[in-house]
Design a protein around this nucleic acid. Sequence first.
DNA 1: ATGACTGCAAAGACTTTGCATCTTT
DNA 2: AAAGATGCAAAGTCTTTGCAGTCAT
Lengths: 128, 128
Amino acid sequence: MENSAKQFRKRNAILACLRQSEAHPSAEELYHSLQKEHSDISLASVYRNLKLFKEEGLIVSLGTVNGVERLDGRLDPHVHFACTCCGAVMDVPDVEVPKSVSCAAAQSLECRVESTRLVLTGICKNCL
Amino acid sequence: MENSAKQFRKRNAILACLRQSEAHPSAEELYHSLQKEHSDISLASVYRNLKLFKEEGLIVSLGTVNGVERLDGRLDPHVHFACTCCGAVMDVPDVEVPKSVSCAAAQSLECRVESTRLVLTGICKNCL
DNA sequence: ATGACTGCAAAGACTTTGCATCTTT
DNA sequence: AAAGATGCAAAGTCTTTGCAGTCAT
């Protein structure tokens, strides 16, 4: 365990960093945050591991904001707000997409709904 | 008018093509559709005009599906479903995001909400 | 002439991948 | 020795932009 912990040192750091962040960072933003503790980390590792995490379902993509993919380590479904001005992405507290929406979709389209992503865009408090 | 119609021939064709499509196409898909009528159109023109249309609010971006931006000529807010298997994007009929969601966000984040985008992802009827 | 739209090719931004190296088993 | 993780640099996608040519005012 100790050994494998060392082997997965950076991988774990990437996941931990994303989970601790409230900023819904991009790969590059994560990379910069990680450099404080892991000055020798590479951007490729960040991308590589993020891709793995997504495939494993450990993290979620929020889609792109200004052409850059943003990620979330929180797995419980919640609504996001993205500021088109500064690019900030934040959680919207105490709001959820009603389950009835995905049910209705599944029924009328005869599809299987696996995830639900509601992103509001606009101008944040700071930019106003 | 006839003259300017000619001048905006391709521009209009791009917008019309998007508005007629139900597929929420990407720039490249639009480009291919347009080639039937405008064999000399260029991909750059498609991208250029789509960017303009977005800025003018004539069309809406649905975000990216498999790394490619998808567009919608319908401006009334509605819910979308994206198939992760085949990449199809379709409208979900008769469902809407309650206004209360954006109101709650505006209130708790003290932000201005300008648009709302709900995308469900999963497996479509055909792929099931 | 001036301003606007286009095609082409080049540039740009973001992300992925091949390969050699190093570590762990 | 084998398997896995990483850094680096190269490659790959998707999108934007500079420039010259064309059309309309």
